[in-house]
Design a protein around this nucleic acid. Structure first.
Lengths: 230, 230
DNA sequence: TCCGGTAATGGTCTACGTGACCCGAAGGAG
DNA sequence: CTCCTTCGGGTCACGTAGACCATTACCGGA
């Protein structure tokens, strides 16, 4: 320890988004864990935990995610750091918040185990600490980001139809999109590339399958859409 | 302390941007302080310091800014939190980075005092810790933000001509902008409102002075362009 | 006093992205 | 074979932004 530091506990929490069937449509959900100790014993909270001595911040986010929910996200980015002195009634806690996307099959795989409830995003209320505010901000960021970055593909599998991708955008934005215009925008953006395969077994015309294009220069010191890698 | 926390020191650092005359044009500068102790003794670094027990993160950023440079920013937002375990050779340090804008007169006021050097942004290299990377990311964010939010006004005074505002955008983006198109875009956005005054004393046609419009709904739990208020 | 230079300001023309809307194509279900 | 629905290609209208032109207003020098 260098000296002069504040006496605070350092934690990570993660807002995890995934798509689950709800009332006949794909809707955005996130996992909540029920607290079993003070403060806020019995209340629901975002998954998270303490940062270990020898691990980085993102590393800590991934580890606590596996420990508390069993989930391995396909996308993870730092969101914001909360550090009001009075955030926690039992002592000072500074929380680095991450935002994550999880593919639906992965979410379904762990839906039954762990002490986890999947809540539709617009029904999330009454969380411990300031987590209500955190969720609202994460949702706002995701909605903004889906407009200019191809983050939505991380909620789907390796290949997908443009109809599926459109459903993801509709679930995130909470409003219907015109299929033809959506197709035009996405294909023109170069964010996806067509494969030779089609999705068969549906009841109607089989859609062509597409694959996400990994953007150039996404490696290196930092991705220009998410933040530094450090 | 709640328990389980990592043994890390919590620091804030701030990337401060301002406009200064350099080689005949307004160019973006930032203040650097020279370190007087290990690690990186003698190297330049971003202004910052330790977070105190009873202060919030943004509060700590403002305090350390005044202590190390005397500057009071007109705009301040949280940027990113760095926490790689090996960032500092002398022990673990987690740094919450803030990004700030300072009006030119304020910058000139403190340019002579303090242990501060004003460096043009594109000549910043060889900083202590991972601060080179931090500056690059802050600059990328500022350039992106100037395109969709009216942050540039925070680099100018109470009133300004559209030519001055255009110079700010040119300095931030590093490329010339068409004066007529810039005027049309800015006035149509409603981000500024005209005053009845004109800037006299120039060599040419006296430009009308404008004032920044405070956006509706910028108060409340969080500003949708900067992040949560907590 | 007049004139040239330059910035301020207003306007036009065009390219482009996007939403609204249309229609044929392709497959399953009855 | 017919109907229903989605896929996927197209048109049209409109709003925004860049390129570019014209006029205005001031200073400083001839």
């Amino acid at each position: 320890m260098v000296g002069g530091a504040v006496t605070a506990s350092l934690a990570v929490s993660t807002v995890i988004f995934t798509l689950l069937e709800h009332e006949g449509a794909q809707r955005l959900h996130l996992p909540l864990v029920r607290r079993t100790r003070e403060p806020f014993d019995g209340a629901e909270a975002l998954p998270g935990g303490w940062i270990a001595d020898d691990e980085g911040l993102e590393e800590a986010a991934r580890r606590t995610l596996v420990e508390t929910t069993g989930l391995r996200p396909s996308y993870l980015e730092q969101l914001y750091t909360f550090g009001r002195p009075d955030r926690s009634p039992t002592g000072r806690v500074v929380s680095v918040i991450y935002s994550a996307l999880v593919r639906s099959p992965e979410a379904a795989r762990v839906a039954e185990v762990h002490n986890v409830r999947w809540a539709p995003v617009d029904e999330v209320r009454g969380l411990a600490f300031d987590h209500d505010e955190v969720v609202a901000y994460a949702l706002w960021r995701l909605r903004a980001k889906v407009g200019y970055a191809q983050v939505a593909v991380h909620l789907l599998g390796e290949t997908f139809s443009l109809g599926q991708l459109r459903e993801v955008h509709e679930a995130v934005l909470g409003r219907p999109l015109d299929p033809a215009n959506f197709r035009r925008r996405v294909t023109a953006s170069g964010a996806v590339e067509a494969t030779d395969e089609h999705l068969t077994g549906g009841r109607h015309r089989p859609p062509r399958l597409y694959r996400a294009v990994v953007p150039e220069g996404a490696t290196g010191p930092f991705q220009t859409t998410a933040g530094p890698a450090a």
